[in-house]
Design a protein around this nucleic acid. Structure first.
Lengths: 249, 249
DNA sequence: CTGACTTTGTGCATTCGTTCACAAACGCTT
DNA sequence: AAGCGTTTGTGAACGAATGCACAAAGTCAG
């Protein structure tokens, strides 16, 4: 038996079919492509919907349909996590939920700090999807004295000066920026200096961060503009020959 | 009535107007890659910031810095729109703003309907970034009688039953879905049936649409989960040398 | 046990996107 | 007009992601 004694994190469950797979290093999660990581939450949502309907097993085709992707993509994506499927049968829904949750780090609750309690910040704070998925709002921060002291979704709005202390005491790993654009970079700098390594930026500004900090951005105006491009493209085709004009009934 | 109820939406985002292989026509801009289109709003924002600082010309390097991308990417992206730069000099800021705006279809104002006036819907309605970029909120729709009649950002909340009429009379091309997940697909079907060809979906649900309808999705919980993955990855490396065993090096 | 059937996991080809490197084009100076 | 420095536009190399096809591995019936 070629069992590695000091193997990667946690315990390695005995994946029965070890066979000849040596390069994959299942479960260690080292080389998961970004595109796959971005889809894991999608699968998680689809699996949760299946579990709600008391479905205990799901093939890649069924999962693909529920997630809106192709079955080949599902299989390749899941294969990066390890061999958690059974050939001829499919994937165990509950077990796969657990494995993906573990890979995403959702098994342990994570503190999130939201900086900027404007329209969007308030909406995010009240959005149930955060808390229900293991994210705890550690703090709501703002510079406006009129807002400080307000209670939103059971959390009190604190002055922005508390940022460093909150990050330290609450072990915050994720910062959400919902400030106006000019305040975004200074806030970002303070978050990074305080030890935050992952930032979700809703402000319409380009953030400059060290290489070891992960930034994801959501720009609502940008999304609309992209759609406007497609709307124009479709609209232009309407003038010439179209095969499906208003045939949708 | 839905067109393909059980149709797997495998190849939904695939056609990028490949009908005509020719893409050399600068003005028409038929074959612009999706990745480039997604960055055009980013360039637009960067250019607007430069224009505000009275910068009249900008090289690809300067633009790249302002947009947070590489200069090669800027040049290749802009080359898809046509030759709007001057060698040895750079790009004229105002002219480029006009060209990109035109390509994105922002020169003519576009009606947007927001369905679902909850936390997020309200925040979007009040978000200034929409109106300031040529998007007009044609209607706010909701099913909750308690919300109907409210005035948000100068727009009155109408009953969801008005959807078809609003889309028709206001020539709405873009629909924004901010309903709870279960209501998303029915709302989507009604939008599509009414003639909306572009949909921005904030509901945590997979939408099934005909091939000629463009859907973009923004899932806030999903973004946080992706960040959680990176947070865990970084955290594991820092805390102890569990992962990254000696095998890799 | 055998054989028919189902489904995973994965090598391979293809398509899509990014990066590199450089000739062509432009302004400016002489 | 000619030479010099700068910057664009683009072919080509490279890399990542997707789709395809099929062997391996499982279930199930008899």
């Amino acid at each position: 038996m070629t069992v590695h004694p000091s193997r990667s994190l946690a315990e390695r469950r005995q994946h029965a079919a070890d066979g000849l797979s040596q390069a994959a290093e299942p479960g260690s999660g080292r080389g998961i492509p970004d595109a796959t990581v971005a889809r894991l939450p999608l699968y998680l949502r689809a699996l949760a919907a299946l579990a709600e309907r008391k479905v205990s097993m799901a093939s890649s085709a069924k999962l693909a349909d529920a997630a809106g992707v192709t079955s080949a993509k599902v299989r390749k994506d899941l294969s990066h996590l390890g061999s958690y499927g059974t050939r001829g049968v499919g994937y165990d829904v509950d077990y796969l939920i657990y494995q993906i949750s573990r890979e995403l780090g959702l098994t342990r609750d994570r503190g999130v700090v939201i900086v900027g309690v404007g329209n969007l910040g308030q909406a995010l704070a009240r959005y149930g999807g955060f808390v229900s998925r293991g994210f705890r709002i550690a703090a709501l921060l703002d510079t406006d004295p009129a807002r400080i002291g307000d209670w939103i979704a059971g959390v009190c709005v604190s002055p922005a000066g508390d940022l460093e202390e909150v990050v330290r005491t609450e072990d915050v790993a994720i910062g959400v920026i919902t400030t106006p654009a000019p305040a975004a970079q200074p806030v970002c700098d303070r978050l990074v200096a305080a030890g935050v390594t992952c930032i979700l930026n809703f402000a319409p500004a380009v953030l400059c961060v060290p290489a070891d900090v992960e930034v994801r951005k959501v720009d609502l105006a940008m999304e609309l503009q992209i759609l406007a491009f497609h709307a124009q493209r479709k609209g232009a085709e309407r003038g010439s020959g179209m095969q499906l004009a208003e045939a949708v009934r």
